[in-house]
Amino acid sequence: MDRVDLVDANVELLLRLRDITKEYNIGGQEVYALDGVSLDVNVGEFVAIMGPSGSGKSTMMNMIGCLDVPSGGSYEIDGAEVSSLDDDELASIRNKKIGFVFQGFNLIARTTALENVELPLVYGRIKDRRNTAIAALQRVGLGDRIEHTSSELSGGQQQRVAIARAIVTQPRLILADEPTGNISTLQSEEIMQIFQELNDNGVTIVMVTHEEDIARHCKRRVEMRDGKIVSDQPIEDRLVAKDVIEQMKSQAITRKPLALAGT
């Protein structure tokens, strides 16, 4: 197993997983969703976690996101050992250090974009919520949609609201679980563009995806199978979302007359 070891004094360790196990009892049988996973993620990394379904990548995300607790092993986030924290402290870590982006967007229904984005600030007891939330929405290009409810937004727009909600508390880590799973290719690229910009500004991103094209936007690729990490490599031929979008748009323009000619 290859592992990228960046032992460098200038690099700050953000996540430190050691021999993490997670077992479920299904029908009287112990099933290991995670079977001794060790992983280090430094500040500023952009990691894609890949693998077939059942490989344990989602369980891994839930562990990293402090939504679930491991059965064994040690997990430190930003120097804090997660197993020693109580529920309220975990909630506080989720609120301040982590931003979640889910496959199904997970916006709160019948609530405006602005209110969705304000919510982490509400739970974080932060003042001046409105302006902070508007700034986050502007950053994802939705400054003109703040009063729209989720049913009035497209899939890509909803996912951008979710990203705004994830970044509004300026967390060190963004966790994205199949963030492009439910949206079109162009919108996916737009989402990846936002992630790349965030990453360029120093935000660490860990993303679960099964799409090879999406994973190529990241900097590091971790592959899992049967609850174990089977490969961990830097991405050589990295895609830049901005370029891909421009390419797609120019193709669309050149393709249009062709399509017309065909009819």
Partner: peptide, 11 residues
């Protein structure tokens, strides 16, 4: 679940 994920405490 969403509220808890983004930092709501039990209280």
């Amino acid at each position: 679940g969403i509220r808890k994920a983004i930092g709501a405490r039990a209280h």
